[in-house]
Design a protein around this nucleic acid. Structure first.
Lengths: 98, 98
DNA sequence: TAATTAATAAGAAATTTGTCTAAATCTCTA
DNA sequence: TAGAGATTTAGACAAATTTCTTATTAATTA
């Protein structure tokens, strides 16, 4: 899993908003771009960053490119984050000691 | 909550490792620095970044500065991430719970 | 085939980030 | 008060990031 890329991808507010938008269903690059006050090439760059991190996927449909959330990888990321940060009183079941 | 700072803080592998180390208990700046092949000023800079994001806290104890995980904020961040990426389409901020 | 629309690639400018060394600050102890 | 240890601040610099404009690729349609 591309953890480092995933974390870096989440560090930008525009990209987090893209993910939030995709949560409710797939959208074309143009539809996504409409939601932002930013040039299309810049948006395209953000799509590429998210894709490199495997957080989103894409397919071409005619003239358009459709983007969708890669829910599997997103859930993997959740597990990693929880494992890294949440070391509460509860002993870990995958962890170090009995 | 300082969400943007928190995400940016998580984007660096050194800082994620610091958080992981602090998960098992508080440590002094020097103890933490020992785990990395990096100058102490650079480490100090990472501590400051994490602190600005409210992910860690600190107190002075004699000559040393002790750092600890700010578990409350970390858990808030978890909720935000889960809500943004894997939740239902409606963001829940103290509102509609089943 | 030429024009049109959708999207990405290329190259450049401004800003931010991660790291270093040298200097300063804070605390303890002789 | 002087010295030593622990940590941070300041200043600098290379590398990465974010954004733009211009150019290019891909698909549709007259």
């Amino acid at each position: 899993m591309r953890m480092n890329e995933a974390f870096k991808a989440l560090a930008d507010p525009t990209r987090r908003e893209i993910l939030r938008l995709l949560r409710s269903g797939e959208m074309s690059a143009g539809q996504l771009a409409q939601h932002f006050d930013m040039s299309k090439p810049s948006m395209s760059h953000h799509f590429a960053t998210l894709k490199q991190a495997d957080l989103i996927g894409s397919r071409r449909e005619g003239q358009q490119v459709i983007y969708y959330l890669n829910t599997t990888v997103v859930e993997d990321l959740m597990v990693v984050i929880l494992d890294m940060l949440s070391g509460n009183a509860a002993p870990s079941k995958g962890g170090a000691n009995p």
